[in-house]
């Protein structure tokens, strides 16, 4: 009996680059699967895809996918990607980042990428801590949570990534989890289809660090938390006050048509050339 090879494999550097670095129970591989399925649905040629990343667990993803891949410096995936997109607008550029990479060291870059509405899809895997360096707190660590650098509990409030990106001007903003995979596939697909800057936040477990530090159990228990502690935006209206307390809302929060940066730049070139022509 010959085994059927899943179609996802043709997008992976499966023979050379595996096994991957991620821990058992990590959610990043699930996000990688969602990205690949969305890419397949888009029908993009692998030669025309650029995946950029910064530093961290999520940022190791580019090693495993058979695209043009760029593992940049910490927090800078989006700005490397901005250069790639400007130099060759035909390329489909996506940036994969962890919460620390995207929102702490890369925080300035992501708000400006959203403000510019540069044609890039940002996929932020949010596992509430810095996994690669051993579980320090990040800008999305919930108040009170324990990490290796908050031994007495986190005293800083956390970022709401989706509100931040809405306020900064992104065209598309969604939040999913690695438990709700079909929903996540769909969100990433819609983000790819969107002109301008699109953002998908994927909540993911980090059983090795965040889970152990907060006694949240193993991979299965942490998946259960993602299932129990989140609600879809469509469920919100039907719920009574109090029922939503402590729940994280999943769904598409922003989906607006706005002129993307590359469209604006093209128009600028035309305007400049016309003005120069008129001067003659």
């Amino acid at each position: 009996m010959s085994a059927t090879i899943p179609y996802e494999y043709k997008y992976l550097r499966s023979k050379k680059r595996f096994p991957h670095v991620w821990c058992p129970g990590c959610g990043i591989g699930i996000v990688m699967g969602s990205i690949i399925r969305a890419v397949d649905t888009m029908g993009w040629d692998k030669d025309d895809i650029v995946m950029v990343s910064g530093i961290g667990c999520t940022s190791r993803m580019p090693v495993y996918v058979d695209f043009n891949t760029l593992h940049a410096t910490h927090g800078r995936g989006l700005v490397f990607g901005t250069g790639v997109k400007m130099a060759n607008p035909k390329l489909n550029v996506m940036a994969v980042m962890g919460d620390g990479d995207a929102l702490a060291i890369g925080g300035n870059h992501i708000i400006h990428a959203a403000r510019r509405n540069i044609d890039i899809t940002a996929i932020i895997v949010n596992n509430n801590n810095y996994g690669m360096t051993g579980g320090q707190f990040s800008p999305t660590t919930p108040p009170g949570a324990r990490t290796s650098t908050t031994p007495y509990g986190m005293i800083e409030p956390a970022f709401d990534v989706c509100k931040l990106m809405d306020g900064a001007g992104a065209s598309f903003v969604a939040r999913g989890t690695v438990y709700h995979v079909t929903e996540l596939d769909n969100m990433i697909l819609k983000a790819f289809m969107k002109k301008g800057f699109s953002v998908v936040e994927a909540l993911a477990p980090c059983p090795t660090n965040f889970g152990r530090a907060n006694r949240l159990g193993g991979p299965v228990e942490m998946m259960q938390i993602l299932k129990d502690n989140t609600i879809n935006i469509s469920q919100l209206k039907a719920m009574k006050p109090g029922q939503t307390d402590g729940k994280i809302v999943r769904g598409i929060f922003v989906d607006r048509d706005s002129i993307s940066y590359m469209e604006r730049y093209e128009a600028l070139c035309e305007k400049a050339k016309k003005a120069a022509e008129a001067k003659k």
Binding site: A72, R76, G83, V84, K85, A87
Partner: peptide, 16 residues
Amino acid sequence: EIASISALIGGRLAGS
């Protein structure tokens, strides 16, 4: 400036 030089590297990798 960090964003600037990072974008440069991306730009040259994409052929400019």
